[in-house]
Simulated assay, not measured.
Amino acid sequence: MDVVIGRVAKAHGITGELSVDLRTDSPEVRFAIGAVLAARLRDGASRSLTVAAARPHAGRLLVRFEEVLTRDVAETLRGTLLLADTADLPPTGDPDEFYDHELEGLAAVLLDGTQVGTVLEIAHGAGGELLVIRREGGGELLVPFVREIVPQVDVRGGRVVLDPPDGLLDEA
């Protein structure tokens, strides 16, 4: 199974360097020189890309791939998802840390067991992570992924338990 570790935001400079939004906690491992990444292009096509260089810049990672030598080629990769095989991911070593793919698909329930929906994905933002939950009756719900609101994550049991403050689950 593949997991998204980054998304190409835009070309940077004239030598084919790419600005990448990270979706991994270990960019130094995932984007190490020589690492070969699977890439899913916007049109659904796939290809492999080999990391030639990577460096942090303005909250993103600037990456050069051996196969991308010009800005024109880099521009064609805008929106490309960079993937890693989940079998290659090291264990987190912390019972309170999870990979996004471990949470996607889990049932979201209240403390009393009431079904709320299913975790679609984890949205990463400057303010922290949000669980994107597809509601049972339709629509989506954003829930801050903090211990006070999500007191229990049971990956083996297939659920996350929510203890939302008043109003969080109200329809907009």
Rank of each mutant, 00 (worst) to 15 (best):
E67R: 09
V68C: 07
V68E: 02
V68R: 01
T70R: 11
T70Y: 06
V73H: 11
V73G: 00
E75C: 10
T76Q: 15
L77I: 05
T80Q: 05
T80E: 07
T80D: 07
L81N: 09
L82S: 11
L82G: 09
L83Y: 08
L83P: 12
A84W: 00
A84Q: 01
A84N: 00
T86A: 14
T86Q: 12
T86M: 04
A87R: 14
A87V: 11
A87D: 14
L89K: 03
P91I: 08
P91W: 10
T92F: 07
T92N: 05
T92I: 08
G93V: 10
G93L: 10
D94G: 01
D94T: 04
D94F: 11
D94R: 13
P95N: 10
P95W: 03
D96F: 11
D96R: 14
D96T: 14
F98P: 00
F98T: 01
Y99N: 02
Y99Q: 04
D100I: 05
D100E: 15
H101Y: 15
H101N: 07
H101R: 12
E102T: 13
L103V: 10
L103M: 09
E104N: 11
G105H: 08
G105Y: 08
G105E: 09
G105T: 07
L106C: 12
L106D: 12
L106W: 11
L106S: 11
L106M: 12
A107L: 12
A107C: 03
A107R: 14
A108I: 06
A108T: 08
L110S: 11
L111D: 14
D112L: 02
D112W: 04
D112C: 03
G113T: 04
G113N: 05
G113S: 04
G113A: 05
T114I: 03
T114F: 02
T114Q: 13
T114L: 09
T114A: 14
Q115L: 15
V116T: 10
G117R: 05
T118F: 00
V119E: 03
L120Y: 01
E121P: 00
E121C: 00
E121L: 06
I122F: 07
I122K: 04
A123G: 02
A123C: 00
H124K: 10
G125A: 14
G125W: 05
G127S: 13
G128D: 10
G128P: 06
G128C: 09
E129W: 01
E129L: 08
L131Y: 06
I133T: 03
I133Q: 00
I133K: 01
R134Y: 02
R134G: 13
R134H: 13
E136I: 10
E136P: 00
G138W: 01
G138S: 04
G139Q: 03
G139W: 02
G139S: 05
E140I: 06
E140C: 02
E140N: 13
E140H: 11
E140D: 12
L141K: 03
L142K: 12
L142T: 08
L142V: 01
L142R: 15
P144T: 06
P144Q: 08
P144N: 07
F145I: 00
F145P: 00
V146A: 08
V146R: 15
V146T: 10
R147W: 08
E148F: 02
E148T: 14
E148L: 13
I149S: 05
I149V: 15
V150A: 07
V150P: 06
V150G: 08
V150K: 06
P151T: 03
P151H: 04
